[in-house]
Design a protein around this nucleic acid. Sequence first.
DNA 1: TCGATACGCTACAGTAGCGTATCGTATCGC
DNA 2: GCGATACGATACGCTACTGTAGCGTATCGA
Lengths: 225, 225
Amino acid sequence: MPTRESGHQGRAGAPPGPTTGLGDDARAGDGPPGDGPAGDARVDDRIRRSREAVLRATADLLGESGLGGVSVDEVSRRSGVAKTTIYRHWPTRAALVVDACSRLSADPAVPDTGTVEGDVTALLTAITELLRTARWSSVMPSIVDAAERDPELAEVHRRIQEGHMAPFRTVIARAVHRGELPPDTDAAALIAGLVGPLFYRRWFSRDPLDAPFVARVVRHALGAG
Amino acid sequence: MPTRESGHQGRAGAPPGPTTGLGDDARAGDGPPGDGPAGDARVDDRIRRSREAVLRATADLLGESGLGGVSVDEVSRRSGVAKTTIYRHWPTRAALVVDACSRLSADPAVPDTGTVEGDVTALLTAITELLRTARWSSVMPSIVDAAERDPELAEVHRRIQEGHMAPFRTVIARAVHRGELPPDTDAAALIAGLVGPLFYRRWFSRDPLDAPFVARVVRHALGAG
DNA sequence: TCGATACGCTACAGTAGCGTATCGTATCGC
DNA sequence: GCGATACGATACGCTACTGTAGCGTATCGA
């Protein structure tokens, strides 16, 4: 049995909705989207503290050792939260990992510079920053790898991916509406032409990711309609 | 999460019984210069058979379960080679994995169609085929992930990467020499613009990888000098 | 104040993997 | 035919990990 787990629901009333924040430098109070109308959902502080400490340690471990390097024992050691407590909140190790990965999204804001070049450059620059941070760019390959075989992680990967692409779609649609891009623009292909070279540099060729390169990518992608 | 596949009774047993080798990797007997005469270096057939069976089973396992899914016990089960024998040939599991990964390269040939568009399209089409084969494109994320932390795998990754980029460099240099591309062409950036979108589609957006997309990528990358 | 809840700690069963040791057998080169 | 070599099979010892059980303690909310 290859660890067939589903339903990673912390039984202690954690809203499973779309989370925000990086889990590290984001604000401590996790956002309550769609649950309580005002502020926290009145959760026991002990629960909140434990969950946060565990997720933080898990995220750290993810960055250091990848998906496979996360063990519940090690998370317990680092977070100072007892292993039994961890299992009180997440039914399996897989559920914990999935939960931690889901908080890596940090969907970027949609820029509005007035031109499609400006918007796209802003988005790519933000991604470049993300690719420079050790943790995010170090965890992503783990997720991609796991997504090749694990359907649950594949879904997580899909959601992260979708979160990153949505702003591009918005910006492109706006440009089409303004007439900057032809109406038959293939958004998916355009995004691949924009983001692909950046990812390639980070994880394959390992060449520097600087502003001139971003400018060059934008010029080529938008150059020949 | 990453698997732990239970026992597939692979059992390839007999010597001439080649397993489902899929791509059936490249060289079998490498003849390093300065060793023996050309061809096989007069190796005991038992050794050759064992090594081959083990490496083949390892490659299969890599494709199925990724780097983390390769255990010596499972390789032994599938290859029919005793675990002790495996350890007689490779000192550690890591050495075996590195060895198996090193044989995934299969450096492509350099095309010569007369135009840079033709050459580049041929190269990208070959890569597209590679991305379609289950094994290669399933192992690469594992290697990328491991390369983030393991220096030895990072070196393997670098070599594979270099092997894939070399034909591009040759083709680009030829185009520059012919005057098809300006003398100050940034080969590395051009390659990123060509290969990046393909990789992106395979491992991130998961959109289809077809000939029109390749044509589009070539057009854009070469379009605006 | 007091019951309910969350937590920490220790111990435990079960599994998997790495790498080694031992011994007997098959095969190769000559 | 014979020694040298490679191999197979089994059994270990060790470590690490998953997930659970029991019990006592701290903390929260009313």
